[in-house]
Simulated scan of single mutants.
Amino acid sequence: MTDLRVFVTRKWPDEVEAALTSRFDTVLNDDEGSLDRSLIAHAMARYDVLCPTVGDTIDADLINEADRCRLIANYGVGFDHIDLDAAKAKGIAVTNTPGVLTDATADLAMTLLLMAARRTGEGERMVRSGEWSGWHPRHLVGSAVSGKTLGVVGFGRIGQALAKRAQCGFGMTILYHARHEVGGDIVRDTRARFCPDLAGLLEQSDFVSIHVPGGEGTRHLIDSDALAAMKPGSFLINTARGSVVDHDALAAGLRSGHPAGAGLDVFPEEPLVPPALLDLDNVVLLPHLGSADAETRRAMGMRALRNIEAFARGADLPDRVA
């Protein structure tokens, strides 16, 4: 136990909360929902460490009022909801939880790909509503996955993990677009081919999966022009950040049948889902489940704890991003 004061904005796994409270003067949130902005401001003025999630916007105004907080230990790998420049100017360190959610998110991207291709969301809704009239040859015919081409936009840990699943499990041809060409075992194992031009990848891919960080640099990377460049009959999958896709353009494309379908786990203003998508059958909509398995959520918390412990010792922070 130290006199370091830690404030957690949302309920974390029990094991992680127990570890935090055993080591530090910790205030937990017993509510699964988000905190009012004024309470976060209050916490940053009175606690040494703030532990937010992707659903907590930590902007410059909050940071500039933070009289005591000196570490933002984010619960998650993405940090575009935190103003890093303001934190740096204020002398507040920011950490994240990389690596531990790679497999869970890649699994979910593959799940969305299969759901969109095989129209399982439509089928499940039909069964639950009592509208299923029985098997017939042309009922809910979707797209095959095995042997098709997958285009991965952003080839970091999660993109590479998805490529491995798609190639080894389904024999898919892998294309990838990234800032730099990647080498090593992943390219050898998946025979992934680098596409320096995004449009070139879109034109060749039966499925396109997004794995880039959020922020202004990638906002609306998938816009109306990108959607128009996609191969006829193709599908878009996004488990990265909602801001990467122009959802109005996507809805218009889905209505016209180009792309043929989509699978989305993230949205620009969560928990709000763009209304234009809600009445479309050819899009699978999930409530940000990318890291939602028990092992991963626990590992994320323990990774955040590791950064807090390093901060308490005055040691280098293992996962510092600012």
Rank of each mutant, 00 (worst) to 15 (best):
T95C: 11
T9W: 12
E124D: 15
F79Y: 13
I174D: 04
G33A: 14
G156W: 12
L62R: 07
A251H: 01
P287N: 05
P137S: 13
V283R: 06
A144R: 14
F194I: 06
N307V: 07
A117H: 02
R10G: 05
A292T: 10
R219D: 13
I222R: 03
E65Y: 00
G130F: 01
P137H: 11
N64M: 06
E269I: 11
S38A: 15
R241L: 15
A43E: 12
G301D: 05
G99M: 09
R298C: 15
G121L: 02
H139I: 15
N29Q: 09
A117Q: 13
L84R: 12
S243N: 09
T21H: 07
S291K: 09
R128D: 15
N64W: 00
H42D: 14
R118G: 12
A299M: 11
D83M: 05
D197M: 04
R303C: 14
A104N: 06
C51E: 00
L278D: 03
A106E: 13
V94L: 05
T296H: 10
D14Q: 10
P232L: 01
R241W: 11
L20G: 08
L250P: 04
A116C: 02
L305E: 01
L28C: 12
L35T: 01
V244Y: 07
H180C: 12
T111N: 01
A260W: 05
F311N: 09
F207D: 02
L112V: 07
N96L: 02
G253Q: 03
G184C: 08
S209R: 03
G257S: 04
H288W: 05
L277M: 10
G253V: 01
G257Q: 08
P318H: 06
A87M: 00
L71P: 05
V27P: 01
N238E: 08
A192S: 13
R179Y: 03
W135F: 13
G78A: 11
V27F: 06
A166P: 10
G184D: 04
D80G: 05
F194K: 04
T105L: 07
P213S: 09
R70Y: 10
S146W: 05
P137R: 12
S205A: 13
D107H: 04
V212W: 05
R128A: 14
P232W: 08
E269P: 00
D248E: 14
G242T: 08
L278A: 11
L264R: 08
V141C: 11
T111K: 00
G142L: 12
K88W: 00
V77H: 04
K164C: 11
W12D: 02
G78D: 11
R306K: 14
M110K: 03
L162N: 11
G214Y: 06
L28E: 06
L236E: 01
S224W: 02
K90F: 05
G200Q: 14
